[in-house]
């Protein structure tokens, strides 16, 4: 294990944003941390990058307990690097940014130039070497930030939502780079995302974080809403995005709900389902996912559905098709 975290908590002004019983990262593997905004992903990465200390609990890095109070954090930081969400580049040229970690490690100039060139090649930014860093697009910035991180020759690279706010072309490029650095350089990778599909594409293992804790299952299709009683006296959850779902729960008032995509049923014909929690939508995305097909259906809001391959084949679904979804009570979790 490259990381072992036990009973790690982080509290800001009496608010606990992280409360992890146990988490470990295997050497040379890619770990995906999935979770909605506010789940504690960034806080966790900052602790793992030795930039922030936990309020309580212990962390082991390569079997050595990390002393967050001691003066050895700089040495540990030189073995792990964090690429932040919306990375920032220093106000100088692209090459100088990539060169910075090498310069502070006092690498010889000729060697530095060679490494900077190779890394910029790797992220497809060689032609931008002399360009001012602040003139790059967000996708290009992220690629240069990854090159700069690689110039640290880290054992672990931590990426905080590496493809947030970047276009599809850069997203593909960044995912390719992540795979490449893991496979060719053997660097352990931990990345955060709230994109389930991306996590399943990239990660060897995925952990779902919710409200600072490792959730027992991966919550998907998460919506904020309010439980109220409808005219027939039944409990109705009205999500902020307009989705209306009948639920059976003790709670009332504001809640968050999750709809399990593996339990949601899909059909070409709405008559197959009861009226309750049945929605008509249009199929907007299909992804192959470990023996199943993930379909994204626009029912006013995008709902993700996991379909067994045989069901998918029998329905003969294609992008743009009209479909019906039914969310049975057991597919809805309220918290």
């Amino acid at each position: 294990m490259v990381y072992e975290l036990r009973n790690i908590t982080k509290t800001f002004e009496q608010r606990t944003v992280l409360n992890l019983e146990r988490l470990s990262v295997k050497k040379g593997k890619i770990l995906g941390l999935l979770g909605p905004n506010g789940a504690g992903k960034t806080t966790l990465l900052e602790i793992m990058a030795f930039l922030s200390s936990p309020t309580s609990g212990g962390m082991w890095f390569n079997q050595q307990k990390v002393d967050f109070t001691g003066g050895k954090l700089k040495d540990l930081r030189r073995r792990v690097v964090l690429v932040q969400q919306d990375s920032i580049l220093f106000s100088t040229s692209v090459s100088n940014n990539v060169d910075f970690p090498l310069r502070i490690r006092k690498a010889p100039k000729a060697k530095r130039e060679q490494i900077v060139g190779e890394l910029l090649d790797m992220v497809g930014m060689r032609d931008f070497g002399h360009a001012p860093a602040h003139k790059l697009s967000s996708g290009e910035t992220q690629r240069v930030a990854i090159a700069r991180a690689l110039a640290c020759f880290p054992e672990v690279i931590l990426l905080d939502e590496p493809t947030a706010n970047v276009d599809v072309e850069n997203q593909i490029a960044i995912e390719r780079i992540i795979r490449e650095i893991n496979r060719t350089k053997g660097i352990s990778v931990v990345f955060t995302t709230h994109n389930m599909i991306q996590a399943s594409r990239l990660a060897d293992e995925t952990v779902f974080l919710y409200e600072g804790k490792v959730a027992r299952s991966i919550y998907e299709n998460i919506f904020s809403g309010r439980i109220q009683t409808d005219e027939s006296g039944r409990q109705l959850c009205v999500a902020q995005n307009g989705l209306r779902l009948h639920v059976q729960h003790d709670k009332s008032g504001p809640v968050r709900i999750s709809i399990d995509p593996a339990i949601v049923e899909i059909s070409r014909n709405g008559n197959e389902f009861s009226e309750d929690n049945t929605f008509k939508g249009r199929l907007i995305q299909l992804t192959d996912e470990q023996g199943r097909v993930r379909a994204l259906v626009d029912v006013g809001v995008p709902l993700s559905v996991l379909i067994p391959k045989e069901v998918f084949r029998s329905l003969g679904l294609g992008i743009g098709d009209d479909v019906w979804l039914n969310c049975p009570a057991k597919s809805i979790e309220i918290f």
């Binding site: 900052e46 990058a49 930039l51 700089k74 930081r77 030189r78 792990v80 690097v81 964090l82 932040q84 919306d86 990375s87 920032i88 220093f90 106000s91 100088t92 910075f100 970690p101 502070i104 490690r105 700069r148 991180a149 110039a151 640290c152």
Partner: peptide
Amino acid sequence: LDDRYRKTALTVGANAIQTAWVIVRE
């Protein structure tokens, strides 16, 4: 100044003086 400059300098291995220099430049 955005705190990410400080964090970036630290995470790529800068010591306190090198981090301060990064901030001075920015």
